[in-house]
Write a protein that binds this DNA or RNA. Structure first.
Lengths: 139, 139
DNA sequence: CAACGACTTCAAGCGCACCTGAAGTCAACT
DNA sequence: AGTTGACTTCAGGTGCGCTTGAAGTCGTTG
């Protein structure tokens, strides 16, 4: 049985975040000892699930929906998010590459460096950027 | 010479966002024709730079700092952000893999699937996750 | 001349994920 | 008995990146 402080430390989140998750219905209300929350060890896993889904770009409200809905709906939500996530990862990777190049490229005005430029152009082209990276992880 | 609406369409952002960028000093105040902003074609590139840096995780305030500071400071900021970005990309990728597995794994309670589980454990371990992926792009 | 559509400013509001502070409770320790 | 430290609730605040709405100004068109 963990106090909220202990759980927070194990999961690497703040106590206020844990109370907030509970308030949203993402974390089940734990047992109480004279008013104080006592979590089972397994609660850390639940927090881990929340963090993982957050990393995947699910808002907390979406995560609540995941808990409530049926398997088919969950699946649909997941697929949609997965596509968004791939898009976002591709964007982040492209931005990373442009920035990284900018650092080792001794061009005085970075925005005029043809390599960096390519990143900007790609970003403005936008939308269909997913195509180029989608093949990298096809499932 | 583009109106704000035309620039917005080309850059794929809202007109209010463009005014906001200008207000923050990220976008130079353009010429005006009877009160209305008229942008040179080159402005689209500038917006592209903002979007690219945003993708890289720079807040707008940080981007303003990038414009103001000296090359050495810029470089320092960039390197710091790059590390953060790598961390974030690794996290997103790990989350993606866990979610993707969850979709094709027919386990009833997904959180009990050993493969998904690994993602959670890794997420809770946290911090040193950067090590595993850092080698993938070493500059 | 009237109306339309795109623009203008300015203040206020929004969504998200918490955080902060006040005021209180409780168990344990000295 | 007093103090410490970790907890409790609750209302309101924060930061970011815009968005929204009101009220007005243009140039063009019917």
């Amino acid at each position: 049985m963990l106090t909220i402080g202990e759980l927070a430390r194990r999961a690497g989140v703040s106590t206020s975040a844990l109370r907030y998750y509970e308030e949203l219905g993402l974390l089940p209300a734990p047992a109480r000892v004279s008013g104080q929350r006592r979590y089972p060890e397994s609660a850390a896993r639940l927090v881990g699930v929340i963090l993982l889904h957050s990393d995947a770009g699910f808002t907390l409200a979406e995560q609540k929906a995941l808990l409530i809905n049926e398997a088919s709906d969950r699946s649909r939500l997941m697929r949609r998010k997965l596509a968004e996530l791939d898009e976002q990862i591709a964007r982040a990777q492209a931005a990373r590459d442009a920035i990284a190049h900018g650092l080792r490229c001794p061009h005085d005005d970075i925005t005029r460096c043809p390599n960096f430029s390519a990143g900007i152009t790609a970003r403005l082209a936008g939308q269909s950027l997913s195509q180029s990276h989608q093949r990298l992880h096809e499932n």
